[in-house]
């Protein structure tokens, strides 16, 4: 998530810079009374680079895909929850009480 976020921020900054350059380029064209046919090549490169970075961000930030197969390594059922409602207390642990030092301070 960290890498994606940084990539996104960088892409955003590149876009901002490209926008600014294009505005200045247009201003210059207006002075020279020429038609706007497209931003200069370096701006195009900047836009493409920014877009690639944003793509990386867009794919990485929402998190990994989770498997949907029920028997995949992450999804498989390991055990059923132990039935705590029916828990009984007279098991062998009765004979060796746990850690007599432990006390609740009131």
């Amino acid at each position: 998530m960290g890498v994606g976020f940084i990539a996104g921020v960088l892409g955003g900054l590149l876009f901002a810079h490209a926008a600014y350059s294009t505005i200045q380029y247009r201003g210059m064209l207006k002075i020279m009374e020429e038609e706007f046919s497209g931003p200069p090549t370096n701006v195009v490169i900047e836009l493409l680079l920014g877009f690639v970075l944003c793509m990386v961000a867009g794919l990485a930030v929402p998190g990994k895909f989770h498997s949907i197969l029920p028997d995949s390594e992450e999804n498989r059922v390991v055990s059923l929850p132990s039935n705590l409602d029916f828990m009984i207390f007279n098991h062998r642990g009765r004979l060796s009480p746990f850690d007599p030092e432990l006390k609740l301070k009131t």
Partner: peptide, 29 residues
């Protein structure tokens, strides 16, 4: 549940990329 999460993830990605694409298209003219 995992399928829904994956679908949400795709939706976010596509929306984000549409927005960025819009910005690029605008700047490019």
């Amino acid at each position: 549940e995992n399928l829904q999460n994956n679908m949400k993830s795709i939706y976010y990605s596509r929306t984000f990329l549409s927005i960025m694409g819009g910005v690029v298209a605008g700047i490019w003219g």
